[in-house]
Design a protein around this nucleic acid. Sequence first.
DNA 1: CACGTTCGTTAGCTTAACTAATGAGCATGG
DNA 2: CCATGCTCATTAGTTAAGCTAACGAACGTG
Lengths: 150, 150
Amino acid sequence: MTAHHPEQGSGDGAAQLAHELRDAITRLNRRVRQARPVGDLTIAQLSALTSLELAGALTPRELADLERVQPPTMTKIVGRLEEAGLVQRAPHPTDGRQVILSATERGRVVYAQFERSRDQWLAQRLSELTGPERAALAAAAEILQRVARG
Amino acid sequence: MTAHHPEQGSGDGAAQLAHELRDAITRLNRRVRQARPVGDLTIAQLSALTSLELAGALTPRELADLERVQPPTMTKIVGRLEEAGLVQRAPHPTDGRQVILSATERGRVVYAQFERSRDQWLAQRLSELTGPERAALAAAAEILQRVARG
DNA sequence: CACGTTCGTTAGCTTAACTAATGAGCATGG
DNA sequence: CCATGCTCATTAGTTAAGCTAACGAACGTG
């Protein structure tokens, strides 16, 4: 089940490692994500709010690309977030077609709350590990973030 | 951005690590999962088929618990998988209320195909890393799997 | 054997996702 | 300088996924 020879062979090693990592990621994500609405926000809404908060300001198109959904889908999600007062639409300064989306102050507060609660389960689990295990995960986290963004 | 002192303080360290890991996991999962239907199967269907294939045989209730959805939701998903000929329902040998779900031969073939294609993107990314980086991820993968199952 | 519990399903609703089509605004070429 | 074409966001319409509530069948126990 574990990786026996991670250093030898970047071909098969990578395939085997990819399988293990994806399995772990899939399972962890199921634990962390909460498929159903969390509080008043759904996953898609929270995810969009997160991307928006991290980026600062985006057009609907950019946000849709980030979330890997089609523009009409993002229109709906943003519409609900706007109704909830968490996101605001502003006209683009020079291009009349485009719209600038940003989180409202309330949106930022709500985002921070969910961010914390989302980390709680995992933080609890991690605190049960040994120091070396946490160190191993910390080293991996940096690499994973790089892979995820690449 | 990286974890500076993973060994000191299991409290704050775990919180910070949890945040970084969750971020990486969320992003990786978005890359890997493809939110929209893959081929003819949706994510929920593929996920249920995966759980069923891994477990061998399950009742709808057990499968719903594994997938962290409510029983009625699983009824629908299994219904579609059954229509597609990937999953079969069988009566429980002793309990007339219960149903035994299992993947059909075709379901197993389809599962294996998706499993491979799902790993491809990640395997490609991993092959671009250095040997030590892959070794670090391999060590982390084992720990992550343990955390995810715990 | 009657009563409560568990199991799976059905019914009805909301959200999320897609494609196709629409309308507004930009930009460019004659 | 304006007509044509393109991009942006949205609307319309469909399918899937998720929920709760309610139901009928089967089990088990007092």
